[in-house]
Design a binder for these strands. Sequence first.
DNA 1: AAGACACGCAACCGCTGCAGG
DNA 2: TCCTGCAGCGGTTGCGTGTCT
Length: 279
Amino acid sequence: MGRQPCCDKLGVKKGPWTAEEDKKLINFILTNGQCCWRAVPKLAGLRRCGKSCRLRWTNYLRPDLKRGLLTEAEEKLVIDLHARLGNRWSKIAARLPGRTDNEIKNHWNTHIKKKLLKMGIDPVTHEPFHKEAKTEESSSTSRPDNLLPESGSTTNNSSLHENDGIVNSEENSSSPHENCCTDESTLLDSICNDETLLNSLWMDEPPLVDASWNNNINPPATDDAKNGEMGYPYPYPLWEDNCTWLFDCQDFGVHDFGFDCFDNLEFKSLNSLEMEEKH
DNA sequence: AAGACACGCAACCGCTGCAGG
DNA sequence: TCCTGCAGCGGTTGCGTGTCT
């Protein structure tokens, strides 16, 4: 329908971001918050597509991001969530504070998929291959785990819990986890038997960590948020806790950017300034 | 030491869903 | 109700880096 491209293709830069571009984007978002992404490149003085800016921010520059490989616990959680949600990486990422959908997707494709294949588990259905072959013969009754109902149908969480092939104790007797890896099964079981966690997993609400960012870098105020919503074992990433990334200069010299202003006090005042501006 | 290959990650592309007019 | 524009999502690609021969 002649829809405009998301950005003016002419003069829009592609490829890896430079430190200078990162600096501009960070500066802009820290002072203005996340507004209309389409307008960001212009306002921030970047020759980038708004989409590209959003991706760069959410996947790389966001200060609440955890860096480094997924922990074993996170990996297990990803596996479990994938069994329930399928390739809905953003939903999965929403349950893993500090992790991005892209990161999880990459990790899945490069690590977890291979692991599962090695274990003889189909990474798509989370069923052991031999079992899958069996069930395909009498397929009408079986349902791949990744075809679970949309999260809108969360009215009967307990029944889901009981009936889900992954957690079903009956199913566990012939589960891939037991066959292939007791460590995996132990942890998965512990996750799956955690009613609170499971219920929360079926809720369609993202954890507060994301909400905080939707609210433009303001740290959560509630104790719930600090303790980790839904009883998550993960420490809730606070802005103050995570701003250290700026000083780590992990991939570029933040100090070279003139970001020395980013000490805790400055962050706090910055936050309060933003709050004032909004009111 | 150097070339080939494999791997992992960042970024892009195209599609979808949603909100506003 | 339809159309349009936007943000967001998931699949895919390409490049940088590490490892092997």
